[in-house]
Amino acid sequence: MKSSAPLIFAFIVGIIVLLSEFIPHSPFNEIVSTLEGWFMIISGFAILLGQISLIRMNTHKIVHKLDNWQYHLAGLISFGLMLALGLLWGMQETPGILGDATGIQAWLGQKPFDYLFENAYLPLSATLFSLLAFFIASAAYRAFIIRGLESNLLMITAIIVIIGRTSIGTMLTGWLPESLHFWHFPNLADFIMEFPNTAAQRAILISAGLGIVGSSLRIILGIERSYLGGDK
């Protein structure tokens, strides 16, 4: 019962959503919009579950003084601080429990949550992702260079796109005559993006779409039940 009842629920809601597409009349429209609203609320709780799990994991490491516990304490403090500021005084136009923090805004120039977001979260996020520039370049060089036709195709395309999309591309091949206009780097990059790239993206979309349709059908019919987890 513990595992068969959820499968029946999944079947019923899945079938209702499918039927609503073919019977776009009352009560199916209302049922589907209600289900979509419920979905949003439940997904909000699911995100809360993720955050609780993060807190539990960090607390466990701190309490048992596992390796690098001090850094996890810093993470937990920053989490608590950001959460408290957001809940107490809100974010952007949204007021918090204690209102709009007009006094603090006069002092900080903005809400405390937004101040922390702009001066800590954004720089950290941008720098972390910019750091990947170095690692992507070195990893790609080691992984792909002179390993065969496919890997060279990947690197050559990447180089053409990078050169073609920056001013260096215009500078390098800007002197080409009109008859060789196609080989001008920006035009070559445009061609790659418009045709071969679109073709491959379409192949991926169609194939993934077919896979999703198959998986959805398996879930609705109760064949795929791994999402229920172990039988505890």
Binding site: P6, F9, I15, E21, W38, F39, L205, V213, G229
Partner: peptide
Amino acid sequence: SRYPIAIMVGTTAGISMLRYMKSDILQQL
């Protein structure tokens, strides 16, 4: 927690099946 997960997964499966059939398969073809 299996009950809310089942409802979320069932709703997502129904919506995804129709959406991807239209946008990712038929439109691309």
